[in-house]
Design a protein around this nucleic acid. Structure first.
Lengths: 245, 245
DNA sequence: TCAATCCGTATGTCCGGACAACCGAACTAC
DNA sequence: GTAGTTCGGTTGTCCGGACATACGGATTGA
């Protein structure tokens, strides 16, 4: 059964994208079983009335996602799954929501402060210049999960406390027209101070998972710097890596 | 100064790859300054005697690396740097070596054991079947930095203790002809048990950074499962993320 | 003066074809 | 029986062209 694929040429959606979506769905759905050959590109193109480059572009996008593997002289195979999602630049809020965890946010601080040396260096602004400072407690199922402290350049975005309670910071930034591009992260661990333990409902000296992140938009501007602490009993970083070959 | 680019058609290296390497070097070297336009693809192709698709392929690879940004109707710009390396599937050994840290390895255990429930599930083998078990202490500058416990399917690779001391596990696997494809990771934190504290030279109850990882080859086979603990005072996970758009 | 429109330009998509490089299996020769 | 060779099949690379689409600035109009 050669799988029923079709493309809609009247659609504004690019043909290669239509195809890659259908292939991905077929893999997800099990119509294309792991290890099975995909059939050669020429035939596939002919069958769909597409050119080979277009088919290749569709396949390539799935190879980049780690769903397919090409072998010269052999063909294109479906990877033996295990692949879920590669690491994305996502917000904790969205992650929790996607996991059905019903996240909630408690805004502790939402103000403007002069930039400390560390914050100024991270955001690439002058020391002492005004920056937004947001401190939040992230809850899941009513239990504190993480303490989030973020700094943003002044004037970049309107930080409304109500909106911060209702959604994540990244979604706010995207809505404001900022196109996120990359981020530098550092994940570590340390003992909780008395104040941190208190905030998160952990005993003093308990181990904490820490994450520092600076996010840049597509012009290279730093748009956010954050120092987060997580309760390791309730949160860990899970992600998938792909080999860049 | 329009940058001197050239390609060698007699070389077996693909033309698009030659071009992307030269562009990357130019960016690295500063010949292409952040924010500057790259010049349109048509001219670039004509100047190099290449076709536009080839030039596009070169540019696209750098866009995927996060070095360039394309804007329709505008052009292709160099990202305002900050980009170093996206997260790779690399071994701790290679990372330390690249950072000039002079890593050393002390093999504590190198044996074959029956797979526990957890290990069997991770590697996708029958519970109780034989698997390699390797336990190592990773040192930098003579100081313990991490404790690495790894399991590998039996018969996949010849695990020589001397080789394990001299290099990293990933390099051994690649040398053995295994093509790594993806990995699932989980990073967390917890308190050190007495034995762990002893091994790493930390006080009992000290916070530890933990990482569990299952690595798959390009056929989807699990080829390695590891449970690592790191001294947070000496190690943290640092990496760069790109937005997949 | 300010807003809407037009237009040049650059990337985005797509086509059809060609040859090269590589893998695996069948075949052949020893 | 085994080793080497040939050969079909598939992906990798590259070409030259065509039209669509979106952005930004200049022009035009109110």
């Amino acid at each position: 059964m050669p799988l029923d694929l079709s493309v809609d040429r009247s659609s504004p959606v690019p043909l290669y994208f239509q195809l890659s979506q259908q292939l991905e769905a077929a893999i997800e759905h099990g119509a294309l079983t792991p290890g099975s050959l995909l059939g050669n590109e020429i035939d596939l193109a002919a069958r769909l009335g597409l050119s080979r480059p277009t088919v290749r572009q569709a396949i390539q996008s799935l190879v980049d996602k780690g769903l397919l593997v090409r072998r010269r002289g052999v063909g294109t195979q479906v990877v033996h799954s295990q692949v879920k999602r590669p690491l994305e630049l996502s917000s904790l809020y969205d992650d929790l929501e996607a996991a059905g965890q019903r996240p909630a946010t408690k805004v502790l601080v939402n103000t403007v402060v002069p930039a400390s040396t560390e914050v100024a260096a991270a955001l690439g602004v002058a020391e002492g210049s005004e920056v937004h400072r947001v401190e939040r407690l992230r809850l899941a199922h009513g239990e504190p999960m993480a303490h989030l402290c973020n700094y943003l350049p002044h004037g970049l975005i309107d930080l409304d406390t109500d909106q911060l309670q209702a959604t994540g910071l990244y979604r706010l930034m995207r809505t404001a027209g900022i196109t996120l591009h990359s981020a530098r992260q550092s994940i570590g661990a340390r003992s909780a101070t008395a104040a941190e333990a208190e905030r998160l409902g952990e005993p003093e000296g308990a181990p904490l998972l820490t994450m520092q992140r600076t996010t840049y938009d597509d012009t290279g501007r730093a748009v956010e710097f954050g120092a987060h602490t997580y309760r390791p009993s309730r949160y860990s970083f899970e992600f998938q890596l792909l080999v860049r070959s």
